[in-house]
């Protein structure tokens, strides 16, 4: 397993235990998504992987090494993270934001080529290259955040609600990109409110219930057989045309 979260307890804020005993795995090349209601603890799990919030107990290992070890570095292990608020530096230009995505890379030539490739993928970024990032629209900022995350050449990409609050046409665009990345072999862990779209694109989906408990996991069809999941989601995942891109 590339990422292995085992019985994680995560405290959020001074007194709330937001995640109580979550376990999940992501294999290399997989697109895995987490769905569940607001406050279920999905985002907290991603933050714990990044070390933004500390692990209270349990273990998170990436490629065999525990992420809370002192020597562990998400950057050196090439884990990229797009937070829910996108984490764009609004006072910097689009170009400067992108350069920061590869700030640790020494292979400047390859980095330039990678930036060029991301500009092909997101043409709007080329158009606004020298513009202050704070002036971009929400959808444009989201594209910038994803492009910037890819410049680390990540082995694991963590996406936290990439389509939150965006226009439907942009949502389609983002999901297209996610699917394309999956086809290129990227390993992705996606947190998504839009359960139907997540089930459609993912290899496997974890259904998470507050406080951070996994109700069930598997493909859309498999989840459909679990009464607790159907009950929690309010619809049967097996009705979703799942994993369309794999076949």
């Amino acid at each position: 397993m590339l990422l292995d979260i085992d019985n994680a307890y995560i405290q959020y804020g001074p007194s709330v235990m937001a995640v109580q005993g979550a376990s999940l795995q992501v294999a290399e090349g997989e697109l895995v998504s987490l769905i569940g209601q607001n406050g279920a603890g999905k985002s907290t799990l991603l933050k714990a992987v990044m070390g933004v919030v500390p692990l209270h107990s349990g273990a998170i290992t990436f490629d065999g090494s525990p992420t809370d070890a002192r020597s562990f570095s998400t950057v050196r292990q090439r884990i990229s993270y797009v937070p829910e608020d996108r984490g764009i530096f609004t006072k910097l230009t689009v170009g400067e934001n992108l350069r920061l995505g590869g700030v640790t890379r020494r292979d400047k030539k390859a980095l330039a080529a990678d930036i060029e490739r991301e500009l092909e993928r997101f043409p709007v970024l080329r158009k606004y290259w020298g513009k202050t990032a704070g002036l971009l629209s929400g959808g444009e900022q989201q594209q910038l955040a994803i492009a910037r995350a890819l410049l680390l050449r990540p082995r694991l990409l963590l996406l936290d609600e990439p389509t939150l609050g965006l226009a439907p046409i942009i949502v389609d665009l983002i999901f297209d990109v996610v699917v394309r990345l999956r086809e290129e072999g990227m390993t992705i862990l996606l947190v998504e409110q839009n359960a139907v779209r997540a089930l459609e694109v993912s290899d496997r989906t974890y259904v998470v219930q507050a406080p951070g408990r996994v109700l069930g996991c598997g493909s859309a069809a498999e989840l459909g057989k679990l009464p607790a999941v159907v009950d929690y989601l309010g619809f049967s995942p097996s009705d979703v045309r799942g994993n369309s891109h794999v076949r």
């Binding site: 950057v75 984490g87 530096f89």
Partner: peptide, 8 residues
């Protein structure tokens, strides 16, 4: 925080 995540 974000800068640290990117490796600054």
């Amino acid at each position: 925080q974000m800068a640290k995540c990117l490796g600054v």
